[in-house]
């Protein structure tokens, strides 16, 4: 069964809204901001964010970006922590289905635009796709330099010693760089950037990605971007190089050894397994006949069955 579908109820409701909720003027303003962001990879461009019918933290920044670039014939995928079926993802998908009447999908390859919170899909993205990140904290220096004017200057003059101090502190305290999410990167050799709270496992995917990557921070009213095929380097030390997360286990359901795994508790007797966080990727693999070591136990526990 194809997961691509059109919400049957959407057509009539859409008439009450502007296409994709935002008025055309706002969308044009955001598109201008996006152009600037694309022109200066990794640079945070301020924008006049609009109030959205969702509280901050629900991805209002990402939603405004998506609303501004969405076309009537586009197909949209929304994921939260890699899954299409979490409340946040479902709500946002419904929001656009209702306000823009666009096709939505859970299949990465089918989507023109993918709005994401906290993950990059496992399946490599293409040049004709756009990845929109929801960003809670766009400023990678904020915890280190609370003075906003000073942190802007640090970006302006590429003074990033302090960012490195943070990593130094990690190594001196924990023996290694302990950052696992929102791991800072240097974009296009120029701007240090917060990749949003994706796991550092996903950082290498940002580098040289064929798809355009857009980042929207609603509360902070900042937009930034990584154009296709741009260098994205995770900060590190020569003698403590960046290393993405690794697992001893493979996905219990599909046997994948190359995907980001979540730990799942199976029963109250301590039974657990690891499964792909990217539900579409896992499902695709299983449909193609891959079977993980825990597939039977999981089925017994009522997990992972379609």
């Amino acid at each position: 069964m194809s997961k691509t579908q059109k919400d049957a109820t959407a057509g009539s409701a859409a008439a009450a809204y502007n296409f994709a909720y935002l008025d055309e003027q706002t969308k044009r303003m955001i598109r201008r901001v996006l152009l600037k962001a694309v022109a200066i990879p990794g640079y945070q461009v301020p924008f006049g964010g609009r109030e959205m019918p969702l509280p901050y933290g629900w991805g209002t920044g990402g939603i405004q970006v998506t609303a501004s670039i969405l076309g009537q014939n586009d197909t949209l995928k929304v994921i939260d922590q890699g899954a299409d079926d979490t409340t946040n993802a479902v709500n946002i998908r419904r929001f656009f289905a209702v306000t823009a009447n666009v096709r939505t999908t859970e299949e990465t390859a089918e989507a023109d635009i993918i709005q994401t919170r906290h993950r990059i899909p496992e399946e490599p993205l293409r040049e004709d796709q756009i990845l929109v990140y929801q960003v809670p904290n766009p400023e990678p220096l904020r915890k280190l330099e609370p003075r906003v004017v000073e942190s802007r200057k640090m970006h302006a003059y590429a003074e990033y010693g302090l960012m490195q101090v943070k990593l130094y502190e990690d190594i001196s305290r924990f023996g290694d760089i302990s950052v696992t999410y929102d791991y800072p990167v240097l974009t296009n050799g120029r701007y240090v950037m917060a990749p949003s709270p994706i796991p550092k496992f996903d950082n290498p995917k940002m580098h040289d990605m064929p798809a355009l990557q857009l980042f929207g921070a609603g509360r902070e009213k900042r937009i930034y971007a990584i154009p296709p095929y741009t260098s994205v380097k995770s900060l590190d030390f020569d003698d403590y190089p960046f290393r993405p997360q690794e697992w001893e286990d493979v996905c219990g359901l599909c046997g994948a050894d190359d995907s980001f795994l979540d730990e799942v508790i199976l029963d109250d007797k301590g039974g657990h397994m690891f499964v792909c966080s990217d539900s579409d990727y896992c499902g695709k693999r299983r449909a193609a006949g891959h079977v993980g070591p825990m597939a039977d136990d999981a089925a017994e526990a009522g997990y992972g069955s379609e």
Binding site: G161, L162, Q164, V165, Y168, D238
Partner: peptide, 16 residues
Amino acid sequence: GGNVGERLMAIGARHY
């Protein structure tokens, strides 16, 4: 150590 190292890192030192 981080306080002393900052200026080194600011001018590009990248060997912990």
